[in-house]
Every structure is written in C-alpha cells, then in structure tokens.
Simulated scan of single mutants.
Amino acid sequence: MDWLLDPFQVSFVRQALWAGILVSLLCALAGTWVVLRGMAFLGDAMSHGMLLGVALASLAGVNVLIGALLSAGGMAFGVSVLSRSARLTQDTSIGLLFAGMLSLGVIVVSHSQSFAVDLTAFLFGDVLAVGGRDLAGLGLALAVTAGVAVLGHRLFVALAFDPRKAHTLGMRPRVAHVLLLALVTLAIVASFHIVGTLLVFGLLIGPPAAAALWSRRIPTIMLGAALIGIASTVIGLIVSWHAATAAGATIAAVAVGAFFLSALGDLLRRRPVRLEGAAS
C-alpha cells in the first residue's frame, strides 16, 4: 500500500491533487452540458483558440488568464453571431473561427523566441507547479460555475432536449445558450493553466461521457463525472509518479480511458438483452 500513498507525501503532489479535484468538479458541471448538447467540437475549438489571446497577453505583459478569457469569449461570441446565418451551420462557424484564431496564435508565437517553454505549458499544463493562488482561483471559478449551473438548470435542460418547446414556453433558449457558453468558457479558462488546453478537453468530455452511458438523470451524470474525474486525478498522479510521465497528460489519458472502459461495460451489459431478444 505504501506505493499508493508515497506520491502524496510530497507537498507539490498534494497541491496537484487538490487542483485536480477542483478541475474535475468544474469540468463535471460544465462538461455534462457539453456532452448532452453535443458541443464537444465547440469546447475543443475554444480550448485551442485561446492560444491567440494567451500569446498576445504574454507579449503585452498582461496576465495570460485575461487573454485566455477574452479569446475564448470572443470565440463564443463569434460562433453565436455566425450561427444566426441561415447559410452557415454551427459546425462551419466553429471550424472557421477555430482555424482562424489558432493560425493567428501560431503566427504570433512564431515571431517570438521566448515562447518555447510557455507554449509547452499552454498545451500540456503543469499540474505539479500549482500554488495556493491557483487553488483559490479554481475554487472561485467552481463557486461561480456551481451557482450558474443551479440557477440556470431549468433553462439548460429545456435547451438540451427541446429548444423549440422552450421557446414556446417563454424560457428564452438564446439566453440559456449564452449562459451555457459562458459556463464552458469559464471552465476551460480556469483549467487550462493546470492541465493545458490539449488536456482539459479530456477532463471536460471523458468523465461526463462515461457517466452518461449509465444514467439519464442529469444530477447523477454530474456526480458520476465528478467521481470519475477525481479518480482519474488520483490514479493519474500515482502512475505519473512511479512511471515518470507528464502528470497532466497522464490524468487526461486516464480520464479518456475511463470512458472507453465505461463504453465496454455498457456494451457487455446490453449484449445479453440483445441475445435474449434474438432468441425469442
């Protein structure tokens, strides 16, 4: 049992554990709606599109979180505006903004000789370097996200399952959509400097998708996603410690792996039912 507990005897690993728990809770709340609304492509685009804002903020000497927030918010706003066109689908709008903002970000980075380490941290994060201020920021983001999730629950449910009916009932699906985009933006921006933009997507999608295979109730999916995310953090840190692998990447890989295990379990669960149906 010592090899399970040894990593957590070190202070920076304990800090990483708390950060992973907060990110898991944050991504469970926002990621559940991403999965139910089929917004995975948008979440991916927003996480990558932040590179432009982070690069410009770094060059200007401004906090990169501000640049990330402005960039992700701009992406969300642009998607909302372009999606109103009858000639453009939402996927097309997302793809255009994704490619445009990412390419501009790469251009900005390519003109600076000092971005090698910063870009690596942007893409893959550094969960083992989390400090007290980072944990406080994650806690604040979690509190805001939880508040929005509770207050907007009915709107989000109507938007996810029947937007037209929500409109006829006067529930303002457009307002719900904006709030949902804000929720996803906050989760991604608050988490990217912990696990990186390429890896936050794994925690945002993997645990909720895994939990959604076993439950139809939204609160249960959120709870399951949170537990899977926390378990992925613990397992990922243990594996990273003993195998000398990147901590953030290992956590994200475990989270994605949890989805495939869940999908396999769901398949095995349903197979006897199918066989009985065929026999009858």
Rank of each mutant, 00 (worst) to 15 (best):
F192K: 06
T168Q: 13
V184T: 08
F192I: 15
F161H: 05
A176M: 13
A211T: 06
R172G: 02
L159H: 13
R172H: 09
V157R: 07
V195H: 13
G202C: 00
A211R: 08
L198F: 08
L213Y: 13
G202T: 02
G202A: 09
L186S: 01
L186K: 07
F201K: 07
P208W: 11
G196L: 00
F201W: 12
L159E: 07
L180F: 09
L181T: 02
L179Q: 13
A187M: 04
L181R: 02
S215P: 07
A190R: 09
A209L: 03
R164Q: 15
A160K: 05
A190K: 05
A190T: 10
V157A: 06
P163D: 10
P208T: 06
F156P: 12
D162I: 00
P207E: 02
I194G: 02
H193F: 06
F192D: 01
V175T: 14
L181K: 04
A176G: 15
V200K: 13
P163F: 14
D162K: 10
A182N: 05
L183T: 00
I205S: 04
A211S: 14
A190F: 05
H193W: 08
F161E: 04
F201Q: 07
L179H: 02
L159A: 15
L199H: 06
L204H: 04
L203N: 03
